[in-house]
Nucleic acid binder design. Structure first.
Lengths: 229, 229
DNA sequence: TAGATTGTTAATCGATTAACAATC
DNA sequence: TAGATTGTTAATCGATTAACAATC
């Protein structure tokens, strides 16, 4: 049995929350606490951790250290993950900065753009290369995955080039879905859709549909903290 | 009956795809085509459009113009949407540029940061204000929604201030979930989780779990175009 | 008619939640 | 013991897909 995408997202969140909360705090945690932080339910937390294969203790809950170790081992590849980044607009730079600064385990093997004014410039410590040389460069340096932050028009051809070099995973910020060969994964992050969704909900609350006042349409449980005490 | 979040996301995507593809092209479209572009199924497209209340024609499919008008009316509020933007790092700037440049119907009513070197500066045409004055400023100018791109530590207090001014929707890019009062919506976009997900899948493909080679765990149908012809 | 598409219902699938025995 | 929590199964819920009559 495989771990689902939803569970995977929550595990990633638990890791983040534990890392934040555990600095100089308790060294054990109950499913109830983790659920509260993550805006989920205790049952779901227990289920997720069960799938991960960590066992808790009926009196003390889960060991934070053990939990972190286990989640880390699950996510982090032994040799790290090499990334090619295509599109050096504001968004590309934001992500480069994040990957470069905060994250162990990720190596940026190249950053690319087609804007002559950017090519050759150093951005957050990397020299920006022309997207014309994308394929040979990535072929030579072997990216495990790629992050695409280009305009929609350019995304598919960039993706094709990268897939041809053996890149097997894409994080796609372009405003269009990507067509990829079998066995290649695409995770799409659509900022404009997210924006429209919030705008729509804010206005439509009473007009478009009859939304429950206690819970939105997206599984976010709200006011969890308030209900607690 | 209300339209679900998933459907809403797809409708937003259809609109985008139609706007791109329809420039000087056919003025009608089949569910089959739309599904192919959106990496979905024809049945789902028909279902989505049914929920939206547009009717197609058995011979000609759906009228692109009518479809766009209908989706626009569904999403776009008559008086537009006013937005407060908090956190003026690379990501905040990327989003500001997007909202300002490409999008009708959104008004930025203020941009905020706590970095003295940013306060007072003009960014993409807006003067950056101190987050210290966030509450009175937003109270005076009435934001429908807010976009938070601050570090995790700052996000909750920023959110509390904004919620107190009557902001009813948040787009949260901070690396932590937000606790909000009832009736307030939060859409979270977690870039770091998305990154970890792809990395995990790229490496784990064969080791962690037995993923089907034809389809990933996340409902992205891959190789749809290939299967078509 | 023959072929293709829509609109919609029923069946399936997957994810979440409730519930509770086992345990400390 | 009494009370609380874990681990896990069964029930529920929601979303997707299959299927097909109606229509052009």
């Amino acid at each position: 049995m495989s771990i689902s995408g939803k569970t995977l997202e929550r595990l990633s969140l638990y890791r983040k929350l534990l890392a934040m909360q555990s600095l100089g705090k308790e060294d054990s945690v109950y499913s109830r606490q983790l659920a509260e932080w993550a805006s989920g339910t205790p049952a779901q937390v227990r289920r997720d951790l069960m799938e991960l294969g960590v066992a808790g203790h009926q009196k003390r809950g889960y060991q934070v250290g053990q939990l972190l170790t286990r989640i880390n081992r699950f996510f982090d590849a032994p040799n790290g993950t090499s990334i090619a980044l295509v599109g050096m607009g504001d968004l590309g730079r934001a992500i480069l900065k994040y990957v470069r600064g905060d994250r162990e385990g990720f190596r940026v093997i190249g950053i690319f753009d087609n804007d002559p004014s950017k090519i050759g410039r150093i951005i957050h410590g990397y020299r920006c290369e022309s997207v014309d040389g994308l394929k040979p460069a990535v072929l030579a340096r072997c990216a495990d995955m790629a992050i695409i932050t280009t305009p929609a028009e350019a995304a598919q051809s960039v993706c094709d080039s990268l897939a041809a070099t053996g890149v097997r995973g894409f994080l796609n910020f372009a405003l269009t879905p990507l067509q990829v060969p079998e066995g290649v994964f695409v995770e799409r992050v659509d900022i404009s859709t997210a924006l429209e969704k919030v705008a729509c909900l804010v206005h439509g609350e009473s007009s478009h549909w009859a939304a429950s006042p206690h819970e939105d349409e997206f599984g976010h449980r709200q006011g969890q903290a308030e209900g607690e005490h």
